[in-house]
């Protein structure tokens, strides 16, 4: 579930990056963040599948809910890292203008 949510986030952000008008939002960072995590969780899932076989696809409801919460929290953490970096680098100068 965590892998699935992160992959959806990665695909959505990549789509937004592809259709961007300019690079002022620095969406590339967010793409790499989510794709990096997705690849790493994919490897984790492959090893887990090799161990559990078919049981991997029938997780307990409680585990699924926990994993979904984790996935959403991971997406939120990624967004927080991206927005903090965006405000610090301030490519559009909005923060500097507001502080003047």
């Amino acid at each position: 579930m965590t892998l699935l949510i992160t992959v959806f986030a990665a695909v959505f952000v990549t789509m937004k990056w592809y259709t961007r008008k300019d690079d002022s939002m620095r969406l590339g960072i967010l793409c790499f963040l989510y794709w990096g995590a997705s690849i790493m969780w994919l490897v984790d899932a492959l090893f887990e599948y090799a161990e559990l076989k078919d049981a991997y696809f029938t997780p307990a409801l409680e585990d699924m809910i926990n994993d979904a919460f984790l996935g959403l929290s991971v997406v939120a953490l990624g967004l927080v890292i991206w927005i903090v970096r965006l405000l610090i680098t301030d490519p559009k100068g909005s923060v500097r203008r507001a502080l003047r």
Binding site: T2, T6, G28, I29, F32, L33, Y34, W35, G36, A37, I39, M40, W41, L70, S73, V74, L77, G78, I81
Partner: peptide, 20 residues
């Protein structure tokens, strides 16, 4: 930079999972 962004991104988010 692409590689380091992917690695650091994955590391931070997986570290969060391990804390979780």
């Amino acid at each position: 930079t692409w590689l380091s962004n992917m690695l650091w991104g994955g590391v931070v988010l997986l570290a969060f999972e391990h804390i979780w």
